[in-house]
Design a protein around this nucleic acid. Structure first.
Lengths: 247, 247
DNA sequence: ATCACTTAAAGTCATTTTGACTTTAACTAG
DNA sequence: CTAGTTAAAGTCAAAATGACTTTAAGTGAT
């Protein structure tokens, strides 16, 4: 039997039977990218997929799909993300497993239980192009500001608005103990670029001089002998992240 | 059909069929309690259950079991914990979903896939009594030091040793932004008791005066008009936690 | 009742860290 | 050569931290 399409219940079974089915497992991803908001300032955006079936037909939802028997959780997250958006982030991390009973528990689909394991990532600007193999589905994938206050959709399918809000909260706490921010940048970056990431995530501006001083205390940053030229000003030195990469 | 017993594969299906089964979902719990280690100093202990079936028959494992269709993830964690140990922690939090392919992937059980969602908690001393309804299973439940360096078992069933280590790591990071520690104490507690919890979790001693000063900066602590009497010294004031309780 | 003993709670002080700001350096565009 | 721009380093007062001292308030023994 093919896996049930996410996040709709298994077809065929009636409501009473569905209530007895074991919970099905799905994987979703929240991908954050740094793009200029409508007001011009760089903010966090997420890719969303428009639903073409009930429930929530026409609403925007997080990219996701089922977990198959032969792949790890992270592999499943990557595969679903590639299939729905063509994206391929360098860094993925598990966010949370959502399995409350009210999820997808609507009259029209019965009480089939769906547990979603959600992964999240921060991607670089050049990784935000949707894959070219999507065909006609291309129109149903788009980047949106992560927060309604920056122009993002106030309502998403299922409980996906709450999931994005939770991911934002985690991101803002996690950046305090760093590391996450580096994955949004390339191999080498200037301190100003790194500061821009921190400012977008935290939602406030940081003093350049103090930011520089504090990062010097962190041993995970290494100065290279390269400089970024081309600006109409003194060229900034490029740095490299030397800390841990995965969990 | 009854849910599959945790964490053994569904009986009846042969190995080839098992590989095609959708992943099954199980819930486990890591319960930390503060007890004196063999050396007398208070350290972290966890309740473990001895396995009575293959695989890992005779090894110690985390309490856990299957997720049924009609309960939330946290409810399932509570129910499984009560059934296997009789424990009922006041506070439970989700730790992580483990679903790597090597989990339980042994020749004798085929490649049935088990995804475990792990919850964790810190409990008070008076909550460490195992329930009285366990009967003959009582001998197969026991508290063990969480760390091998304090006398705990170096090897556990499945990947449970890694899970406990990860929970310890999360605990030591999380206590920095507090809150977790309060759940190990009662409604009211002295600053010395709170300091003992922090010391056990962090594994080092803290200066009483500085600890007091730093907590006064935290608004989540409220001094009561009660004092703990009975010691052969000046009675300490009792405090109350006023911060958030759940997620 | 007095005294030695113990821990609570507050205070002291030098050092470190932080936040706001200033100065100097090094490039580009005209 | 000059004005404009940002990089990078430096200054300084305020706040936080770590090690330590002093005083308070109970207990049990004499």
């Amino acid at each position: 039997m093919a896996p049930a399409p996410f996040p709709v219940a298994v077809g065929g079974a009636n409501v009473a039977e569905r209530a007895q089915l074991p919970p099905s497992l799905a994987i979703s991803t929240v991908i954050f990218a740094l793009k200029p908001a409508p007001d011009g300032r760089p903010t966090l955006w997420v890719p969303l997929v428009r639903r073409v079936r009930e429930p929530y037909r026409g609403s925007w939802a997080l990219p996701g799909g089922p977990l198959t028997a032969s792949e790890s959780l992270e592999d499943a997250a990557r595969r679903n993300l590639a299939e729905t958006t063509g994206l391929d982030p360098a860094y993925l991390e598990q966010l949370y497993a959502f399995g409350g009973l009210r999820r997808a528990n609507r009259p029209d689909i019965g009480s089939q239980r769906v547990v979603s394991i959600v992964y999240w990532a921060l991607v670089r600007a050049h990784e935000t192009e949707f894959g070219g193999e999507l065909g006609e589905e291309r129109d149903n994938v788009a980047w949106h500001p992560a927060e309604p206050s920056h122009g993002g959709p106030a309502e998403l399918a299922f409980d996906h608005r709450e999931i994005v809000d939770y991911a934002l909260w985690r991101l803002r706490n996690k950046i305090e103990y760093a590391q996450v921010a580096y994955h949004v940048l390339g191999e080498m970056f200037t301190l100003a670029q790194l500061r821009e990431v921190h400012e977008a995530v935290l939602g406030r501006s940081l003093d350049p001089a103090n930011f520089r001083r504090q990062l010097k205390g962190t041993a995970d940053l290494e100065a290279t002998e390269h400089y970024l030229e081309g600006g109409r000003h003194r060229p900034p030195r490029l740095y490299r992240y030397t800390g841990p990469r995965g969990l």
